[in-house]
């Protein structure tokens, strides 16, 4: 590793490691892309592919992102964009969960869907895409539905779960499991021109609050479908929330929901109660 580090240092310019040198180190020392990225970041070398992050995310924070795991539950409209953005951001481990394969009706909006991969598992497409855009990121692809039975196992070792599901009942299960295992959940949902985002930490019940009137079935998305841009908008806000959670910076969408209407271009913030903290009398 010392030799590899010397190699990386020699090839770095102004503290930045070019991609060509990264690849040369992979080849020369038989290391994985992830190992080279870790070695660089741990030694203060900023991979040049992240250079436009640098004024917002310093090398220690980039290492923190690289050392983080995020589960993306659902790899369709929202999940495809979330995976794309987190991989480009440099989150080191992504757990992609979805039971489905791509179908023709996904092509209008799901960034991972192409005519060539119709019939391919969405999680496999996610794995292939991440390998193309950022091979330092490890993807654990799980072609299965998330639920109470396997939830704890799927979330083992991750810091955050992203809700990119298309079912309210599964969302409520994700809220339950994230609360039980003690990790934050970034919730997003879309339908037509409309979408919303909220972030929930363990002990909070924003998601349960958002669906407090729900009895069964789907929302307006069932009649409206979803266009190309709504998932991109909502997924991007979800990715920003994940970034802030992992880095412990900024103001999160906790105890509130941001509702976005792209038809009328309105944004509404809906408050949700903070959990009541029990104060023990002295």
């Amino acid at each position: 590793m010392n030799e590899a580090l010397t190699f990386l240092e020699e090839w770095s310019r102004e503290g930045m490691l070019p991609w060509a040198a990264h690849c040369a180190a992979v080849k020369h020392f038989g290391l994985s892309h992830a190992a080279v990225e870790r070695l660089a970041l741990q030694n203060g070398l900023f991979p040049a592919r992240y250079q436009r992050n640098r004024m917002m995310i310093d090398v220690h924070e980039q290492l923190r992102l690289f050392s983080s795991g995020v589960a993306v539950i659902g790899c369709g409209g929202l999940g495809g964009y979330v995976i794309e953005e987190l991989a480009r951001l440099g989150v080191g481990h992504l757990v992609a969960v979805d039971p489905d394969v791509f179908e023709e009706h996904n092509l209008n909006r799901q960034i991972l869907a192409t005519p060539n991969n119709l019939g391919l598992a969405k999680v496999e497409a996610a794995r292939q895409r991440v390998e193309q855009i950022n091979p330092a990121v490890t993807v654990t692809a799980v072609q299965d539905a998330f639920g109470l039975a396997n939830g704890r196992e799927l979330l083992a070792g991750v810091e955050v779960a992203v809700d990119a599901l298309d079912s309210i009942s599964y969302r409520l299960e994700l809220a339950e499991v994230t609360g039980a295992v003690g990790i934050p959940m970034v919730h997003g949902a879309i339908g037509g021109w409309y979408g919303h985002v909220a972030t929930q930490f363990p002990g909070e019940e924003t998601v349960q609050g958002i669906y407090r009137h729900w009895v069964a079935g789907k929302g307006i998305e069932q009649q409206l479908g979803n266009p190309a841009f709504t998932p991109a908008v909502i997924a991007s806000i979800e990715a920003a929330e994940v970034c802030k959670i992992l880095l412990g910076k900024g103001e999160l969408l906790r105890n509130r929901k941001l509702s976005i209407d792209l038809l009328e271009m309105e944004v509404h913030e809906i408050p949700y109660d903070q959990p009541v903290k029990l104060v023990r009398a002295a």
Binding site: G74, G76, G77, L78, G79, D163, A164, L165, D166, S167, I168, R171, G188, A189, I190, G191, Y194, G195, H196, Y211, H213, W214, K218, G219, I220, E221, Q222, N226, P231, S259, H268, I270
Partner: peptide
């Protein structure tokens, strides 16, 4: 839904959104 409205109340209704 079963809440009684009072004079001067402002009632706002949003549809259910659950897609992904």
């Amino acid at each position: 839904l079963d809440q009684e409205l009072l004079p001067g109340d402002v009632l706002s209704l949003f549809p259910l959104v659950g897609g992904g």
